[in-house]
Design a binder for these strands. Structure first.
Lengths: 226, 226
DNA sequence: GACCACTGTATGGTCAGACCATACCCAACC
DNA sequence: GGTTGGGTATGGTCTGACCATACAGTGGTC
């Protein structure tokens, strides 16, 4: 047997209510005091449950009064995924190899699908221009992230795009180090141009190969074949 | 400007401590009362921060006393990912198409890598045998999940395996409905055998094609080409 | 000396109550 | 009619208390 803590019961009740009452994004939950009274628990337990839901990216709390105040249902899987990956990476429980492999898998898929629809090329141009203007490695990585996230967005799959964004955010530090280690970003620029061209030309196979080569350039230690 | 809540400050402090002190899995955090005193906040704020960390799968709290009690650093991204996906799916913010596409991407990658190493075939055999013995759709799906997770595990990438497992858990209900809708599981059995054979034979391309066809059989509505 | 029962204590789990800052609502006022 | 002030509901925070749990001794018993 296993004890269930009060906030876990609150979590289950709220989740059940979401499913049964058909609550959706934008709907408001009752106030903390009212929720505590309804469920027969203390306010602190309700708060812990709401904190969990906030961590998972499904509610957002606002103080004050009015239609916008209180716990509002949202859907922000990005930040939640980012925190999850960042903290677990911080515990060194995942190795860089595993994260880069996951990135490669997602980028290949995204690039192929983006090429199939030839979508989002304007965002790619803007990101490339931003990288050209960047003065520091931090700025460069920021626009580099925008470039790769634009590919994922163009694929049309929000789940995969969210995973991509979270992986990038969690690996931000590694990316900056990789750029600084490389020194000259011209090879990366050529890679980006090649990826952009493949997507604009609607060539999925070439787009996949381009992102593969690009990651091999950024992490040469993980690609012994190159 | 944006206010920072007390528990967010606690979170940042704990995360900093993890990074600077080199804390790792198995290490213990100070008790709630002691942490509150050290950081100058109330115990409830510390508790909310710990609840967030628990939700993200990096700490585990045990009551009582002794070396095992208290907040212990762990790394359990699986459950955290599962909760995240399940709740966000419950809000209908992601469509089935997106989830199935993500699954297809991951399964193709996993099957190809598993075939490259020819690993984990014994777990695949056990899962197939379990599906043969299954009497209900629930039991069948349970072993089916084990089968597909075994492929992901065999790929050797824990991050991708965790994403796979979370996707399956979050989609458990859909999978049961799909099996019931199909009625006769013999076509799925043939698919599984084909996947197993491709991995055992070390044929990555065939393994990829086999899982693609398998998912097309399970979700025919999403694969108009078949 | 080995084993067992009791007590002490540190831990998380929970609740109640109080107070604060915020931000809307509304009525009274100019 | 516009403005200003109080009223009020909200989340945010702290304090203090109590409970259940599970280990760490302590002491007794055989």
């Amino acid at each position: 047997m296993k004890r269930t803590r009060a906030f876990e019961d609150v979590l289950a009740q709220i989740e059940r209510r979401i499913a049964e009452d058909g609550l959706t994004v934008g709907d408001r939950l009752p106030g903390e005091r009212r929720l505590a009274e309804q469920l027969g628990v203390g306010r602190s337990s309700v708060r812990e449950a709401l904190r969990v839901l906030e961590t998972l990216g499904v509610v957002s709390s606002q103080v004050g009064r009015g239609p916008e105040a209180g716990a509002v249902l949202t859907s922000r899987p990005d930040t939640a995924l980012t925190d999850l990956l960042r903290l677990n990476l911080g515990l060194a429980t995942l190795e860089q190899r595993e994260v880069v492999d996951a990135r490669l898998m997602i980028e290949r898929w995204s690039a192929a699908h983006a090429a199939a629809t030839r979508a989002g090329t304007s965002a790619l141009d803007a990101a490339i221009e931003g990288m050209d203007r960047a003065g520091t490695a931090e700025e460069f990585v920021e626009h580099d992230t925008a470039f790769h996230c634009a590919i994922a967005d163009a694929s049309g799959n929000r789940l995969i795009a969210a995973i991509m964004r979270s992986l990038r955010d969690a690996m931000r530090r590694n990316a900056i180090e990789a750029v600084e280690r490389l020194g000259d970003p011209s090879v990366l620029r050529a890679d980006h141009e090649r990826i952009r061209a493949a997507i604009a030309a609607g060539d999925p196979d070439e787009a996949q190969q381009a992102v593969t080569d690009h990651l091999a350039h950024a992490y040469p230690a993980l690609f012994p074949g190159h």
